[in-house]
Design a protein around this nucleic acid. Structure first.
Lengths: 248, 248
DNA sequence: CCCTACGTGTGGTCTGACCAACTGTCCACC
DNA sequence: GGTGGACAGTTGGTCAGACCACACGTAGGG
């Protein structure tokens, strides 16, 4: 039995996590002032530099505002944080993944993936369709080995997004891939939600063909169908839950 | 003539900018090792702590990999950076905005905005349509005062995205708003590109009505039309350029 | 009453030191 | 010959303490 890599978190990372958590949970609401750096340092029992690194990272994410000599103010992350916060929203309450967050992720994935496929059909360089077909071939090859499907799915959509010639899609998709990792770690349910999507190998091949033919309309439609399955699965999951799970 | 606020950049921010630029320009390509922290500090003529803060921020963005005792490796930002990089891509080459980046931004904005409108029609809380109608009223009120259109447009789409009940859209839209600021600053052309979109007040009112009626299909269609105008404008701009502008 | 000047608190920068992890080398041992 | 341990050098991580720069409240002078 192989052992995995040991998670080693630096002191600054731990401070970052603690502050992030207290902001996301609302313990430190928007507009409130954080304690001074020096006090945070003694509270955490660490050096001031570690606190500073954490605070600068929070600032970069838009979660706090720091003014020289004026203290640190907590922002409202709903209006000032960027997409980079998404992976951390998933991990923030580590007991279970917020279904609304999951749905958000799947919807964003679907809407970007579908449009990327549309553009990929007309803007992608030569050879993209061949790459996609190769991946589909591998998919068909490994019948039930579910553990490797995920990787192939990533490569498939990676190729499409790369072929869409849209940096914004590319970057957003990178964030989404990171989120997927956090999702899979935090919640065992997520993979099974995706399962029905993975199974549709036929559509994967159709999509590759449509992209190879340069048919934007068909590509967008098939990709939407493919990715819509994941959205539908999350929605069903959401509907099956008691009504009290709807926060954030 | 009123003078604006002076940009005061901390030392760590300047180091961050320099490193970011040298990574984005490819001067420090993927896989290359950065000089050690101590050397970077003497090169920049600053403290090592400042360098550390900058490096930690680069790490958070996924641009570099840092291993304890092992040095700092530059990542390929195309595969490892998140959407947070988008604003910095715009500013990176400050002479002119890369048209491909601009197009990417407008497309992402359009695709998210349209889907947000679709969901806003069915998922938004009571009163959203009233808010939207109020904003449209203000739009109609200030005939040619173009400077204030931008603000109103932001509020309008803010309300829609907030009503879509999708955190991912919300966060991505926050990033896009930030990008819009950078765009307007870096390139005077951007506002005129958006102008035709702003002018379509009638569609803005139609969209508010469709959302109020809970008509998802119409909302998505109108929003797509509205936002598609901006995409089309950028595409025309792109087509009018000499072919040598296509990098990145 | 204004408003200047100052003190206090807070973020920003610096110095220097030490700890901890990776890397390569060499050598004892099997 | 190969394996594993001991070692030194490089580099990131942490710490302590000091000083500078800015914001803000307040008391004193006009």
């Amino acid at each position: 039995m192989p052992i995995g890599p040991v998670a080693r978190q630096s002191v600054a990372d731990q401070v970052f996590d603690q502050l992030l958590r207290s902001i996301l949970t609302g313990e430190e609401g928007p507009g409130t002032q954080l304690p001074p750096e020096r006090e945070l340092a003694v509270q955490a029992g660490v050096n001031r530099q570690a606190v500073r690194e954490a605070l600068q990272r929070l600032r970069q994410m838009g979660l706090v505002e720091i003014v020289h000599g004026g203290g640190i103010t907590v922002n409202d992350w709903r209006t000032s944080a960027g997409l980079a916060l998404l992976p951390m929203l998933v991990v923030a309450h580590e007991t279970a993944v917020d279904p609304v967050v999951s749905r958000s992720i799947m919807e964003l994935r679907a809407v970007i993936g579908a449009d990327a496929a549309r553009w990929c059909a007309t803007r992608s360089p030569e050879g993209t369709a061949e790459v996609l077909n190769g991946i589909v071939g591998q998919m068909e090859g490994l019948g039930g080995d579910f553990s490797r499907w995920g990787m192939l799915g990533y490569s498939y959509w990676d190729a499409i997004v790369a072929g869409a010639d849209n940096v914004a899609y590319l970057l957003a998709y990178n964030t989404l891939r990171e989120v997927a990792g956090a999702l899979a770690l935090a919640d065992r349910m997520a993979p099974s939600l995706l399962e029905r999507e993975w199974r549709q190998t036929g559509l994967y091949r159709d999509l590759a063909k449509a992209i190879g033919a340069g048919d934007a309309e068909a590509s967008g439609r098939i990709a939407g169908e493919l990715l819509g399955a994941g959205v539908a699965a999350v929605n069903e999951w959401l509907a099956s839950l008691p009504a009290d799970r709807g926060g954030r």
